[in-house]
Design a protein around this nucleic acid. Structure first.
Lengths: 114, 114
DNA sequence: CAGCATCCAACACGATACTG
DNA sequence: CAGTATCGTGTTGGATGCTG
């Protein structure tokens, strides 16, 4: 009988019990997160810049992924009290601590995709 | 109008055009891949060992994820012509080239999940 | 400008039963 | 032992239209 516990759905808590790798991968592995992180690694960007820089992303998904990464403390959302409104996104300290890993992943990917 | 090309679905080809990071993350980022890779990093294992070592995984998902990683060249499937049958899974050279990155991800995760 | 709300299709995933 | 087949469902994500 392969059913050790009651919570069978995938969530961060489940994963945490297993190992940090899963936590890391669910944190950066979202559908559009690589694309976003890739851009933000090069410096802060405003919402419309991100949207225009990432091909095919819908605003719905862009916002969802940004919110998740904000919640996870990877990025900062900075709202300027201006008209028209301006919002910028920027890596946090925690987000920047991922830089070398993101670079490694990117390099590995470039070398290994045929 | 945000629709540059016709193939709007997510696939490796799409991602490749963007950057290696997405390729890397879709390659190792499956639902059970971290758990599998984590085990196989420590040495070859047979199917039943993997199944028993990973809590809550169904055989269906285990096989699906193993097949994907085999297809991506990360792991090797070794079938012994014996009765009862024996199948072992092992990291390939390409898979092993991921080791330091997997370690980094794991360490980052352990440090950053609260 | 920077989003949010709603709807809906596709897919991922689990449960269960069966097999070479 | 090491899987496969089938089914049902919850989630993911795209399309579209609306808003402070």
């Amino acid at each position: 009988m392969r059913k050790e516990n009651s919570t069978n759905t995938l969530n961060k808590q489940n994963l945490e019990k297993e190992c940090g790798m899963s936590y890391a991968l669910t944190t950066i592995g979202g559908r559009w997160k690589p694309a976003i992180l890739w851009r933000l690694c090069k410096g802060k960007m405003r919402y419309s810049e991100l949207r225009d820089a990432i091909p095919n992303v819908t605003e719905r998904m862009l916002v969802l992924q940004l919110r998740e990464m904000e919640k996870d403390g990877l990025i900062k959302r900075i709202v300027y009290a201006e008209v028209p409104p301006r919002v910028e996104y920027e890596m946090t300290v925690k987000g920047n601590s991922l830089r070398p890993i993101l670079k490694s992943l990117s390099d590995w990917g470039d070398e290994n995709r045929l």
